[in-house]
């Protein structure tokens, strides 16, 4: 039995499997986030329901607010597990490439917030009586890019937030303005898809912007993570 420097992909999948297994066993994150998604759907429906034409105009905003809140809940939760008995220290004290650990965490957060949106999107469509079915694919793509943007920025900041007092208040305060380009792009892009706004270059420009955001901050975070977690 000898220790060879573990490979990037091996670490990535090990951390993902570990998180998935822990999640399936406790189910706490999925349960709380699922219920939270339901509650939020009702609140948003109460807040925004109007005539059909107006509903079609406001549903992008409702979807993206839902994503923002789901994402905030998710990034806080996934890191709480690492912080509980300080297993995170053991994780980053292992020879595993630290950026692989961060990337795995980003993917977990991305999946969590996207799965909440898979629940919320059809429910909102039913409650606000907007037929999203014809444009479901593009809308989910936008939401995925948004969830990605939230994950790449929110995950490293959530890791850092354990050091601060009022972490649970601070985190949204810090992350929301940071992801504003993605939020703007998402809301506007979704309206373009639904035909309630017309941009100069359609939805493509927004997709480009969000993709660029996800890649830039994802790569930046991975690059800096080593320096971030060293005390």
């Amino acid at each position: 039995m000898s220790g060879a420097a573990p490979g990037y992909v091996a670490i990535l999948s090990a951390v993902l499997v570990k998180d998935l297994r822990a999640e399936l066993r406790s189910k706490e994150t999925l349960a709380t986030m699922g219920l939270f998604g339901l509650v939020m759907t009702f609140i948003l429906a109460f807040g925004f329901t109007a005539d059909p034409a107006t509903n079609r105009r406001v549903i992008p905003g409702a979807l993206w607010i839902a994503l923002l809140f789901a994402g905030t809940l998710g990034v806080g939760r996934t890191f709480a597990r690492e912080a509980k008995d300080d297993a995170f220290s053991a994780l980053i004290l292992s020879p595993a490439p630290r950026s692989a650990v961060l990337l795995a965490k980003m993917i977990v957060n991305f999946c969590l917030s996207l799965s909440v949106m898979v629940l919320v999107t059809p429910l909102l469509a039913i409650m606000l009586r907007v037929d999203l079915l014809p444009s479901l694919g593009p809308i989910m793509l936008m939401l995925a890019l948004g969830a990605g943007g939230f994950a790449v920025v929110g995950t490293p900041l959530a890791v850092m937030a354990v050091n601060a007092r009022f972490a649970e208040v601070l985190l949204p305060m810090v992350v929301f303005p940071m992801v504003s380009p993605v939020l703007i792009g998402g809301v506007k892009g979704t309206s373009v898809i639904l035909g309630t706004t017309f941009g100069d270059d359609g939805v493509g420009g927004w997709i480009q912007l969000m993709l660029a955001f996800d890649v830039a901050f994802g790569v930046g975070g991975l690059f800096l993570f080593e320096r971030m977690v060293t005390e």
Binding site: P156, M160, A161, A164, R165, V174, F217, G221
Partner: peptide
């Protein structure tokens, strides 16, 4: 708070 961790957090925030 005043700890080293908060400084690090803030630094990451400025860098992002």
């Amino acid at each position: 708070g005043r700890g080293e961790g908060v400084r690090r957090f803030a630094a990451v925030l400025a860098v992002f």
